[in-house]
Measured scan of single mutants.
Amino acid sequence: VTLFVALYDYEARTEDDLSFHKGEKFQILNSSEGDWWEARSLTTGETGYIPSNYVAPV
């Protein structure tokens, strides 16, 4: 499993987005949709879409 870490804070803009804080780690569930990836936060357990340019591989 490839994990990603948040480089910046992000505040959700829609109900499908996932808010997160810098340093939070994610498991990517689906990265085939372009710039927005479906991810699960390893901190909160919540699932939603995150901007791929806000995260980097651990």
Rank of each mutant, 00 (worst) to 15 (best):
residue 17 D to T: 13
residue 45 G to T: 04
residue 53 N to Y: 09
residue 32 S to P: 10
residue 33 E to K: 14
residue 28 I to F: 03
residue 37 W to C: 02
residue 28 I to M: 04
residue 6 A to Y: 00
residue 35 D to H: 12
residue 5 V to M: 10
residue 2 T to S: 15
residue 3 L to E: 09
residue 30 N to W: 07
residue 44 T to Q: 04
residue 34 G to F: 13
residue 39 A to C: 05
residue 32 S to T: 12
residue 48 G to C: 01
residue 48 G to R: 02
residue 4 F to P: 00
residue 5 V to I: 13
residue 46 E to P: 01
residue 49 Y to E: 03
residue 2 T to N: 10
residue 38 E to H: 12
residue 19 S to E: 04
residue 21 H to I: 14
residue 51 P to F: 06
residue 28 I to T: 02
residue 35 D to P: 09
residue 47 T to M: 09
residue 25 K to N: 09
residue 5 V to F: 11
residue 29 L to N: 05
residue 20 F to K: 00
residue 16 D to I: 12
residue 3 L to P: 05
residue 53 N to P: 06
residue 46 E to Y: 11
residue 18 L to M: 11
residue 55 V to D: 01
residue 27 Q to V: 15
residue 47 T to A: 08
residue 8 Y to E: 08
residue 27 Q to H: 13
residue 4 F to V: 11
residue 24 E to P: 00
residue 21 H to T: 14
residue 58 V to H: 10
residue 29 L to C: 06
residue 44 T to H: 03
residue 7 L to C: 04
residue 33 E to T: 12
residue 44 T to D: 04
residue 18 L to C: 02
residue 31 S to Y: 09
residue 14 T to S: 14
residue 50 I to H: 00
residue 57 P to T: 06
residue 45 G to M: 08
residue 10 Y to G: 02
residue 1 V to P: 14
residue 58 V to N: 06
residue 16 D to Y: 15
residue 57 P to R: 07
residue 7 L to E: 04
residue 2 T to K: 11
residue 3 L to W: 10
residue 53 N to I: 10
residue 31 S to P: 12
residue 23 G to D: 06
residue 35 D to S: 09
residue 51 P to M: 08
residue 32 S to R: 12
residue 40 R to E: 09
residue 32 S to I: 15
residue 6 A to N: 00
residue 23 G to A: 03
residue 54 Y to G: 06
residue 26 F to M: 07
residue 4 F to W: 10
residue 11 E to H: 12
residue 47 T to L: 08
residue 11 E to C: 07
residue 1 V to N: 14
residue 2 T to L: 13
residue 49 Y to W: 14
residue 58 V to M: 14
residue 9 D to I: 02
residue 3 L to N: 06
residue 58 V to C: 08
residue 6 A to S: 05
residue 11 E to W: 08
residue 17 D to Q: 14
residue 5 V to E: 10
residue 23 G to S: 04
residue 17 D to S: 11
residue 25 K to Y: 15
residue 6 A to V: 01
residue 46 E to F: 13
residue 35 D to L: 12
residue 57 P to D: 05
residue 57 P to S: 07
residue 44 T to C: 02
residue 54 Y to I: 06
residue 44 T to A: 03
residue 13 R to S: 14
residue 1 V to Y: 15
residue 46 E to N: 13
residue 41 S to H: 08
residue 27 Q to C: 08
residue 21 H to C: 08
residue 49 Y to S: 07
residue 8 Y to H: 13
residue 41 S to C: 06
residue 43 T to E: 13
residue 4 F to S: 03
residue 8 Y to V: 08
residue 32 S to Y: 12
residue 4 F to R: 03
residue 11 E to M: 13
residue 35 D to Y: 12
residue 12 A to W: 02
residue 21 H to Y: 13
residue 15 E to P: 13
residue 55 V to Q: 01
residue 10 Y to A: 02
residue 14 T to V: 07
residue 26 F to Y: 01
residue 34 G to C: 06
residue 5 V to H: 05
residue 27 Q to K: 07
residue 6 A to F: 01
residue 23 G to L: 03
residue 28 I to N: 01
residue 22 K to L: 06
residue 7 L to A: 03
residue 42 L to F: 08
residue 57 P to C: 05
residue 20 F to W: 01
residue 10 Y to W: 10
residue 1 V to H: 14
residue 22 K to Y: 06
residue 36 W to N: 06
residue 19 S to Y: 03
residue 25 K to D: 02
residue 41 S to M: 06
residue 43 T to K: 12
residue 25 K to P: 05
residue 2 T to G: 12
residue 20 F to I: 06
residue 42 L to V: 09
residue 14 T to R: 14
residue 9 D to P: 07
residue 40 R to D: 02
residue 43 T to R: 15
residue 4 F to C: 06
residue 32 S to H: 12
residue 34 G to M: 12
residue 6 A to G: 04
residue 28 I to R: 04
residue 11 E to N: 12
residue 12 A to M: 04
residue 19 S to C: 04
residue 14 T to M: 15
residue 52 S to M: 09
residue 17 D to V: 10
residue 53 N to D: 13
residue 31 S to H: 12
residue 27 Q to I: 15
residue 55 V to A: 03
residue 12 A to D: 02
residue 31 S to K: 15
residue 36 W to T: 07
residue 41 S to K: 14
residue 6 A to R: 00
residue 47 T to D: 04
residue 46 E to S: 12
residue 49 Y to P: 03
residue 48 G to H: 03
residue 52 S to D: 03
residue 49 Y to I: 09
residue 26 F to R: 00
residue 21 H to R: 15
residue 20 F to Y: 01
residue 24 E to M: 06
residue 4 F to A: 11
residue 10 Y to I: 01
residue 22 K to P: 04
residue 40 R to G: 02
residue 22 K to T: 09
residue 12 A to F: 03
residue 38 E to T: 11
residue 41 S to E: 03
residue 13 R to F: 09
residue 39 A to G: 06
residue 50 I to G: 00
residue 21 H to S: 15
residue 36 W to F: 15
residue 20 F to D: 00
residue 53 N to K: 13
residue 46 E to G: 09
residue 55 V to G: 01
residue 37 W to T: 03
residue 50 I to T: 01
residue 5 V to L: 06
residue 45 G to V: 01
residue 52 S to Q: 08
residue 24 E to S: 04
residue 35 D to I: 09
residue 38 E to V: 15
residue 40 R to K: 14
residue 34 G to V: 12
residue 49 Y to D: 03
residue 34 G to H: 10
residue 17 D to G: 14
residue 54 Y to C: 05
residue 28 I to G: 01
residue 55 V to R: 00
residue 42 L to A: 05
residue 7 L to P: 01
residue 26 F to H: 00
residue 49 Y to Q: 10
residue 57 P to F: 07
residue 37 W to P: 01
residue 45 G to I: 02
residue 39 A to P: 00
residue 58 V to D: 12
residue 20 F to A: 02
residue 13 R to E: 10
residue 8 Y to D: 07
residue 3 L to I: 14
residue 35 D to M: 14
residue 12 A to I: 02
residue 20 F to V: 04
residue 47 T to I: 14
residue 16 D to M: 14
residue 56 A to K: 14
residue 48 G to L: 02
residue 18 L to S: 01
residue 5 V to G: 03
residue 21 H to D: 07
residue 1 V to A: 14
residue 56 A to I: 12
residue 32 S to F: 09
residue 23 G to P: 00
residue 26 F to T: 00
residue 2 T to E: 11
residue 4 F to Q: 04
residue 14 T to A: 14
residue 25 K to G: 05
residue 31 S to C: 06
residue 18 L to A: 02
residue 56 A to L: 10
residue 4 F to G: 04
residue 31 S to M: 13
residue 8 Y to C: 06
residue 7 L to Y: 03
residue 54 Y to W: 08
residue 7 L to F: 03
residue 33 E to W: 11
residue 13 R to V: 13
residue 48 G to A: 03
residue 27 Q to F: 14
residue 7 L to T: 04
residue 30 N to K: 08
residue 9 D to S: 09
residue 15 E to M: 14
residue 23 G to K: 02
residue 24 E to Y: 05
residue 5 V to R: 04
residue 11 E to K: 13
residue 32 S to L: 11
residue 46 E to Q: 15
residue 24 E to W: 08
residue 31 S to F: 15
residue 51 P to D: 06
residue 9 D to E: 07
residue 18 L to K: 02
residue 37 W to H: 03
residue 52 S to W: 09
residue 20 F to L: 05
residue 39 A to R: 00
residue 22 K to E: 08
residue 42 L to I: 11
residue 23 G to Q: 03
residue 25 K to S: 07
residue 10 Y to L: 03
residue 45 G to S: 06
residue 19 S to H: 05
residue 47 T to H: 08
residue 39 A to K: 00
residue 7 L to G: 02
residue 49 Y to C: 06
residue 18 L to H: 02
residue 57 P to E: 11
residue 43 T to N: 10
residue 10 Y to M: 03
residue 50 I to N: 00
residue 6 A to I: 01
residue 53 N to E: 10
residue 50 I to P: 00
residue 18 L to T: 02
residue 43 T to M: 10
residue 12 A to L: 02
residue 28 I to D: 00
residue 3 L to C: 06
residue 15 E to C: 06
residue 4 F to T: 03
residue 23 G to M: 03
residue 19 S to M: 04
residue 47 T to W: 10
residue 6 A to T: 02
residue 41 S to F: 03
residue 47 T to R: 09
residue 33 E to P: 11
residue 28 I to V: 10
residue 24 E to H: 08
residue 48 G to F: 03
residue 40 R to L: 13
residue 39 A to L: 01
residue 19 S to G: 08
residue 14 T to Y: 11
residue 37 W to V: 06
residue 22 K to Q: 10
residue 24 E to A: 05
residue 36 W to I: 08
residue 26 F to E: 00
residue 3 L to A: 07
residue 42 L to G: 03
residue 12 A to S: 15
residue 16 D to P: 05
residue 18 L to P: 01
residue 1 V to E: 15
residue 15 E to A: 15
residue 45 G to D: 06
residue 37 W to M: 06
residue 38 E to W: 14
residue 14 T to N: 14
residue 52 S to T: 07
residue 3 L to H: 10
residue 42 L to H: 06
residue 30 N to I: 07
residue 29 L to H: 05
residue 34 G to P: 13
residue 12 A to T: 05
residue 51 P to Y: 07
residue 57 P to N: 05
residue 2 T to A: 12
residue 19 S to F: 04
residue 43 T to Y: 09
residue 55 V to P: 01
residue 11 E to V: 14
residue 33 E to A: 15
residue 10 Y to S: 02
residue 9 D to T: 06
residue 20 F to Q: 00
residue 44 T to R: 04
residue 24 E to V: 04
residue 51 P to I: 03
residue 5 V to Q: 09
residue 4 F to Y: 15
